[in-house]
């Protein structure tokens, strides 16, 4: 286990290095930040001066070397827009994003696990049909629409939750449900189909032939086997939430990473974009490693080498 973690960590370094190159090149080929930073009346001479001051007149590879040298010291450069170091700007947003992703995930799991299991165990009954129907609807509703509907109902009409912003527990309820309901719908269907497959396995028949109660047959013998593919989806979903809750963040003015990233891309704020992508990549890698560890716990057939 310890050895496994060391090996994984050794893989992280080249991956992060590659990502830094890709992001650097992409950001630099997509446009010139100087055009956005200066007023339209600025002369070409003014632009040249600013470029030189920012080091943008150097060849790309030289800019990269300067950049990576600084990154290794924890310096992602200053944001053109905010005039502050980029990394703290990104890290400042990370807790909000994590919070939203984690609560949304939790809501998804709490709804999906029982619904998916019931749906599978009671397949083709009225209950199953109702759950399947609801999950199709849940999956079909786009986040921006769902967010607005929740605001209209719970904030505007009922006045139960604040319309936007981040603060106490009441602030996170609506954005987390907006994302969580979609997740729940998707995971319910996945858990249902997984459980159905598992329930027809030979070892489930064995468990029944041993005289176990059905609760144990499903909850002990089937559930953990059914969990393995679900963990994969959950991990993928979580990582995509870290960088991709933009729509929901916008609807609810949630000060997360997605919002920062998109406005920075629009403003060609290279330092912030690079720092944000770097951090998101790091989170994705760490999530994948944790998923691997969970797999090993769930399925003894997977070995550490």
């Amino acid at each position: 286990m310890g050895q496994y973690l060391v090996r994984m960590l050794l893989q992280v370094v080249p991956v992060m290095f590659l990502i830094s190159i890709i992001v650097f090149v992409l950001v630099h080929v997509t446009g010139d930040p100087v055009n956005l930073m200066l007023p339209e009346t600025a002369t070409e001479e003014d632009r040249e001066i600013l470029r030189a001051a920012l080091g943008l007149d150097q060849p790309l590879y030289q800019q990269y070397f300067v950049y990576i040298k600084n990154v290794l010291q924890g310096d992602f450069g200053n944001s053109f827009h905010y005039g502050e170091p980029a990394l703290p700007l990104v890290l400042e947003r990370l807790p909000a994003t994590f919070e939203l992703a984690a609560v949304a995930m939790l809501i998804g799991i709490v709804i999906a696990v029982p619904c998916g299991m019931i749906s599978a165990v009671k397949r083709n009954t009225v209950l199953d049909v109702i759950i399947s129907f609801l999950s199709v609807i849940g999956k079909a509703m786009p986040n921006f629409w769902m967010g607005i509907m929740l605001i209209l109902l719970f904030s505007v009409s009922l006045g139960l939750f604040p319309v936007s912003g981040r603060g106490g527990v009441e602030h996170i309820v609506l954005p987390a449900f907006t994302i969580g309901i979609g997740l729940a719908a998707q995971m319910t269907r996945l858990i249902r189909s997984n459980m159905l497959e598992i329930l027809s396995q030979d070892y489930i028949r064995t468990a029944r032939s041993k005289g176990l109660r059905e609760v144990l047959v499903v909850g002990r013998h089937a559930f953990r086997n059914g969990l393995i593919p679900v963990v994969t989806i959950m991990s993928l979903q979580f990582t995509s939430l870290i960088g991709g809750t933009l729509v929901t963040e916008t609807v609810f003015a949630w000060p997360g990473l997605g919002q920062l990233l998109v406005t920075s891309v629009n403003m060609r704020d290279m330092a912030v974009v690079q720092a944000a992508v770097f951090i998101i990549a790091l989170v994705v890698i760490v999530c994948n490693m944790l998923t691997d560890v969970v797999y090993r716990y769930l399925d003894p057939r997977i070995k550490y080498n």
Binding site: D202, T206, R224, N225, D299
Partner: peptide, 15 residues
């Protein structure tokens, strides 16, 4: 009690 045909799949892999 019963012994099934498939010893490969009749035991639960995770226990």
């Amino acid at each position: 009690s019963v012994i099934f045909q498939e010893p490969m799949t009749s035991l639960n892999p995770i226990f």
